[in-house]
Structure formats: C-alpha cells, structure tokens
C-alpha cells in the first residue's frame, strides 16, 4: 500500500519539479532585490538624517508587524487599485523582496551601529568623505558582523515563499497541495515536500551556525 502510493506520488514528479523551481526562483530573485533594498534601508536607519530614519522605521515596522499572508493580499489587491497590474509571480516577488528588505534593513542597521565610532572618526580624520567612510571602512566591517544573521534571514525568506501559494502560484507547498488531492496520503506527500524544503534550507542553516561559531571564536 505504502509503496504503491509512493510510486503514485513519484508519478507526479513534473509537478514537484515545477514547484521546486518556482520556490527556488522566487527565493533567489527576492533575495537579490531584498538584499539591495535592505542595505539601503539599513544605511538610512543607521544614518544621520533622523527624519528619514524615522520614516523608514515606520515603513519597516508596518511590514514587520503584520503577517506576510496579509502583505501578499495587500500587494495582490491594493496595487491594482492604484493602477499597478502585476502577475501573481510579480506580486509574489514584490511582497517577498519587500518583507525581506525590511528584516535585512534592521539587521544591517544593527551591524553598522556595532562598528565602533572610532573607525569612522579615524577615517574622517584621514580625509575620507562620508560616502567613502561608509563604503571602505564601516560597511565591510558591518557585513562581516551581520553575515550569519543574513544567512538565517535567507532561510526565513525561502520558508516565507510558501505563503505565496495563497495567490495561486504553484510553488513547492502548492504542488504538495495539488498532489494530495489525488494521492490521499497527507503524511507521505507533505513528508516529501518537507524533505525537499529541508534539502534546500538545511545547508544554509548549517552554514549560518558554523559562521556564528567561528565569529564567536574570533571574539573570545
């Protein structure tokens, strides 16, 4: 019975493959946009312009304080109202990269603040402009501090991408939902789905943990 069902699930491999490629492409695309936007947010949040930092802070708080499912709906339903028509995939990418940017922004800001003030003072006194200080002195050190947290954030991003199945994208989770309609064994089907996520995410979790440990070793 079990082997027969496993066989039937495996007959759905094109659906599974489609789901995996959707999850991976959503995650990678949103990751790239999210990191770029997130670094911009982080630099503003840690920057000297108080007003701007507060405005970005409110924006970030809105997306950190509401469920991602709600944000997906907001992008999917509200953006068309103001004349931006997006496909389901584009909506997913917008929602995902936006939420990723908000979380990455806070991580980057904390990293920038963790770089001792003396570093930028030293740079200033050797004639670096503010932009140069940021680019050559502060950011490289901040990136080293936040890398483990960033990798952890990537894992969250991949997992959050499962939520966009709610607007009809056929990602890994959705493919499980499709398969379970014809092979009524939820444990088996979602066991396989869970295993696929594990294969994608665990290396990142492992990497993040190892980097954290190595980081501690250099500090202690």
């Amino acid at each position: 019975m079990f082997w027969m069902q496993l066989d039937r699930v495996m007959g759905y491999w094109p659906v599974l493959l489609k789901g995996i490629s959707m999850t991976v492409s959503l995650s990678i695309l949103s990751l790239m946009i999210g990191v770029m936007l997130g670094f911009a947010f982080g630099m503003i949040r840690a920057g000297r312009n108080r007003m701007l930092a507060q405005i970005v802070g409110l924006y970030v708080d809105f997306f950190r304080g509401t469920p991602f499912l709600l944000q997906v709906f907001i992008v999917f339903f509200i953006l068309p109202e103001i004349g931006i028509e997006l496909s389901a995939f584009a909506s997913g990418v917008v929602a995902l990269s936006n939420v990723a940017a908000c979380f990455i922004g806070e991580i980057v800001a904390s990293g920038i603040k963790a770089v001792p003030l003396g570093q930028s003072e030293a740079a200033a006194s050797s004639g670096f402009t503010r932009v140069q200080q940021m680019r050559h002195i502060v950011l490289p050190q901040a990136v080293r501090i936040v890398t483990p947290a960033l990798v952890g954030q990537f894992v969250l991003l991949i997992k959050d991408s499962s939520v966009v199945s709610a607007i009809g994208l056929l990602d890994l989770t959705r493919s499980g939902w499709v398969i379970v309609q014809s092979v009524p064994n939820g444990l088996l089907v979602f066991g396989i789905i869970g295993f696929s996520y594990f294969v994608i995410c665990y290396p990142l979790i492992y990497l993040s943990r190892r980097m954290e440990r190595r980081g501690q070793a250099t500090i202690l």
Partner: peptide, 19 residues
C-alpha cells in the same frame, strides 16, 4: 527550522485524518 509552517500545517491537516 528547515521547513515552512504552511507545509507543516498541511502535513497535519491532510495527515492526521489519515492516522
């Protein structure tokens, strides 16, 4: 930690009746 909540939710939702 390596799987999304939604997949876990469906695992239980479709899996528990099976048991």
């Amino acid at each position: 930690r390596a799987t999304p909540l939604l997949a876990q939710l469906y695992f239980l939702y479709f899996g528990l009746p099976r048991l």
